[in-house]
Nucleic acid binder design. Structure first.
Length: 373
DNA sequence: AAGCCGGGGCC
DNA sequence: GGCCCAGGCTT
């Protein structure tokens, strides 16, 4: 067994949290290795090939908790419809949400539009992370990303990629309650490592490395430019880091109604101030009409049963074909959020991603049933 | 600090 | 089925 080359100083486990104990020289070599790797391996994305402040901001909002492959088609459509802050600021929120349909975390879209409203009226753009933090939807990560990329601000990004890389470099066994706690713990380390001469490239390089080399499972350590700085990569088990506490999962059953009348479908629209899915439509929860889960007798036959996850909730949604009992009207009291939507208007409204799919699916199925009969 | 917000990719 | 992803807001 050949002796491993280990460029790292011996570290006490307890000292690993806040700052990597690299020498000045090691920090410089770390930056040089990273920045030499980046231009040779960076992927071409529309917001990189044709960069602008606006495109950088839009991409960062879309990329919050969302993978690049998912974002790409949305980004292109978005740029055609809302090419700049001005256009976005003047657009209707319903139109903005429609273009976000299916991406999830819909407050990102509302915040992005509000941000555009605040910026489109200004003579000059804010250029510091502190100033960007004042804008809606901009937290520590996005402020650092936007200002380092667009203005060369010396602000370090700490996202899931960076946490994964740094925790492996440390071989850090600290258990964090979630990714956010880990990100806060690594903020000082990331700042100390940031290359002050090229902050934007440095940040993007770290995230690119996390996305294309330092995978959560089966990382490509043998090709990693930072291997010589990485304790887990050299002698440990990279997949064990970072250590995040297990999340509690809650299971939920939601009965929903497929309620047709003439050429309309009954839908529920969340209020504009709702915490979840504000202003978006979904098939009505049976409980809104005073019906109980499991009461198939009054709910009607099952048309569809689907599982999905929303953060820590494991949700099973069962869609029943519902016909109101004779003589009983569906109560459309003001403020209930229930609306009859004509079928020819369905494409114009915004549903949550899964409900959009299910509604389209069921409408198509009814069409076939009709032509069969 | 803890809870909440979507949806999809991947193992 | 479980975990993660270019996080941020509310309480």
């Amino acid at each position: 067994m050949p002796e491993r080359h280990n460029a790292l100083p011996e570290l006490e486990p307890s000292s690993l949290l806040a700052v990597i104990e690299f020498t000045e020289t090691q920090v410089k070599n770390f930056r040089r290795s990273l920045l030499s790797w980046y231009p040779r391996h960076r992927r071409a994305f529309p917001w990189r090939e044709e960069p602008s402040l606006y495109r950088t901001v839009v991409s960062e909002f879309m990329l919050q908790q969302t993978q690049v492959s998912t974002v790409l088609p949305y980004f292109e459509r978005w740029m055609k419809r809302f090419p700049d802050f001005e256009t976005l600021a003047n657009a209707r929120e319903s139109d903005v949400l429609k273009h976000w349909e299916g991406l999830g975390y819909y407050n990102r879209a509302r915040n992005l539009r509000r941000l555009a409203e605040k910026l489109s009226g200004r003579k000059s753009m804010p250029e510091t992370p502190e100033a960007w933090r004042e804008l809606p939807g901009v937290g520590p990560y996005t402020a650092a990303a936007v200002t380092s990329i667009a203005f060369g601000a010396r602000a370090a990004c700490v996202d899931g990629n960076v946490v994964r890389i740094l925790s492996r470099i440390h071989s850090d066994d600290t258990e964090f309650r979630d990714g956010g706690a880990a990100a806060r713990a690594y903020t000082a380390t990331a700042a100390a490592l940031l290359d002050p001469a090229r902050p934007g490239d440095h940040n993007q390089a770290m995230m690119e490395l996390g996305a294309t080399v330092c995978f959560r499972t089966k990382p490509l350590c043998t090709t990693c430019p930072l291997l010589r700085f990485c304790r887990a990569g050299q002698g440990g088990d990279p997949e064990k880091h970072p250590v995040l506490a297990a999340k509690k999962v809650t299971r939920v059953e939601v009965p929903r109604l497929w309620c047709r009348r003439d050429n309309s479908l009954l839908l529920h629209r969340a209020s504009g101030t709702a915490r979840r899915l504000a202003d978006l439509y979904e098939l009505p929860d049976a409980q809104l009409l005073g019906l109980e889960a499991g009461d198939t007798e009054s709910l009607g036959p099952i048309l569809l049963r689907r599982k999905r996850s929303i953060t820590r909730y494991r949700i099973t949604e069962t869609i029943h074909r519902y016909s109101p009992p004779r003589g009983r009207k569906v109560p459309l009291s003001a403020g209930s959020g229930l609306e009859w939507i004509p079928l020819d208007r369905l494409n114009g409204i915004t549903l949550s991603g899964p409900h959009r799919k299910w509604v389209d699916e069921l409408i198509a199925a009814e069409g076939e049933a009709d032509s069969d009969g």
